[in-house]
């Protein structure tokens, strides 16, 4: 923990959705304090990890409801802010990388225009400066020939390139906190590494905070400092990434054991006993 005040401070975060049989809580009282560090949130689908990420940006759609005793970013309480103030904050200070580039990029806008839009929404720059920043950003995400790529449409690029463009778009307003929600699960292993290395490098360089949401324990362990394991809306365990293999909680141990190894010799993979957890 750093001595300075935390970048993000969340206390008792709750998200619920109404159903015919009464409201269902998908995040049940989550506490989180994040400095300029890399935090990984891991869990199965339905554990509430994505909802946590969205709640931080106040992106829970109606009829979903979110409440928290405290949700402060850089000392400012987010819950009282108007929608307009929130819009200024989203993208500029906190930004989010979504899972699938195919669905998150606008298919009828050129890549250059989309990236420029993210910048123009938050800063007042001349057209030439905007153009220069876009090209510089595309270079930063290692796209060769950025001038040409800026004029292409999303369907003309591959998945890995699409995800790098998403990253460029999210990082161009120079945010302080980046939330990456399964940034690589739509990608191949070989491209996965490249994209994560890139996020990692940019985050370190600019001293940003990172929240990496994923279901892949080993991947999170490789790229984060701290890991939070979620199950059924609650944090079951928090530990330093390097101590992941020493994790105590049976749920974490179960998740770890279920991953097939490169040097696999087990005949059967151990499976989580769901009855113990009330099922998801």
């Amino acid at each position: 923990m750093t001595a300075t005040k935390p970048l993000l401070d969340v206390e008792n975060l709750r998200v619920s959705f109404p159903t015919p049989t009464g409201p269902v809580e998908v995040v049940k009282g989550l506490n989180l304090s994040l400095g300029r560090e890399r935090l990984g949130i891991v869990g199965e689908s339905g554990s509430g990890k994505s909802m946590t990420g969205r709640a931080i940006l106040r992106l829970i759609r109606k009829p979903g409801k979110m409440t928290a005793d405290r949700l402060a970013f850089d000392g400012v309480e987010l819950q009282g802010l108007s929608e307009r103030k929130m819009r200024d904050l989203r993208g500029a200070r906190i930004s989010m990388i979504m899972q699938d580039p195919k669905f998150s990029l606008n298919p009828v806008m050129t890549i250059g225009y989309q990236i420029a839009e993210a910048l123009k929404a938050h800063e007042n720059l001349s057209r030439r400066d905007v153009q220069a920043r876009v090209i510089e950003m595309l270079q930063a995400v290692r796209i060769n020939d950025p001038e040409q790529v800026a004029q292409m449409y999303p369907h003309q690029v591959s998945g890995g390139m699409g995800q790098r463009i998403m990253i460029a778009m999210m990082l161009i307003p120079r945010p302080d906190l980046l939330i990456a929600d399964e940034p690589t699960s739509a990608l191949d292993v070989s491209v996965q590494g490249q994209v994560l290395d890139l996020i990692d490098e940019l985050v370190r360089e600019k001293g940003m905070g990172l929240i990496l949401i994923s279901h892949d324990l080993n991947l999170v362990a490789r790229y984060c400092d701290r890991i939070m394991v979620m199950h059924a809306g609650q944090v079951v365990e928090t530990c330093a990434a390097k101590d992941l293999h020493k994790a105590q909680h049976p749920y974490t141990r179960g998740l770890l054991a279920a991953v097939p190894q490169m040097k696999e010799t087990r005949e059967v993979l151990p499976v989580l006993d769901r009855s113990q957890w009330g099922g998801t």
């Binding site: 199965e44 998740l255 279920a258 991953v259 097939p260 151990p270 499976v271």
Partner: peptide, 14 residues
Amino acid sequence: LDVSVQAEILNLLK
């Protein structure tokens, strides 16, 4: 699929 569900399906296939 998730890792935990993946393990179930892989066991099933095997």
